[in-house]
Amino acid sequence: MNSEQKPDNHHIFDPEEITQPAKRGAWKWMLPLSIVLAIVVFAAWHFGWHAKAVTTGVVIFATISHVFAWVVAMIGLVPIIGPLIVKVLSIGVIWLLNAVGYLVSYVAIKRGYSKDVLTYRAVTIALITGIVIGYILCSLIS
Results as ranks from 00 to 15, higher is better:
20 Q>D: 05
53 A>D: 08
57 G>V: 02
34 S>M: 09
13 F>E: 06
38 A>N: 00
130 G>M: 05
27 W>C: 01
29 W>Q: 09
129 T>C: 10
54 V>A: 10
70 W>C: 08
50 H>S: 09
50 H>Y: 02
106 Y>M: 10
116 D>G: 14
24 R>L: 13
34 S>E: 05
37 L>H: 04
36 V>F: 13
84 L>M: 10
120 Y>V: 08
59 V>I: 10
53 A>Q: 08
82 G>R: 00
12 I>T: 10
26 A>F: 11
92 G>V: 06
80 I>L: 09
123 V>E: 03
125 I>P: 02
122 A>I: 09
46 H>V: 12
16 E>K: 13
78 V>Y: 12
30 M>Y: 13
82 G>Y: 03
84 L>F: 10
74 M>D: 03
27 W>V: 08
90 S>V: 09
48 G>M: 01
74 M>R: 15
113 Y>C: 01
84 L>G: 07
59 V>F: 12
62 A>E: 03
53 A>F: 04
33 L>R: 08
89 L>S: 02
16 E>L: 11
57 G>R: 04
63 T>Y: 13
103 L>G: 10
40 V>K: 01
11 H>W: 07
63 T>R: 08
74 M>L: 06
126 A>Y: 07
22 A>K: 15
82 G>I: 02
128 I>D: 06
95 W>A: 12
77 L>A: 13
11 H>A: 14
59 V>R: 01
105 S>C: 07
15 P>V: 01
35 I>T: 11
79 P>Y: 05
30 M>N: 12
91 I>V: 14
51 A>E: 06
87 K>G: 02
56 T>V: 04
63 T>H: 08
45 W>T: 13
70 W>K: 05
105 S>G: 11
68 F>I: 09
35 I>S: 07
111 R>V: 11
86 V>L: 07
40 V>N: 03
107 V>W: 05
37 L>V: 01
79 P>S: 00
42 F>E: 05
45 W>H: 11
36 V>D: 04
93 V>P: 01
91 I>C: 01
40 V>L: 14
27 W>Q: 10
52 K>T: 14
110 K>V: 03
108 A>M: 09
56 T>A: 15
129 T>H: 04
110 K>T: 04
99 A>Q: 09
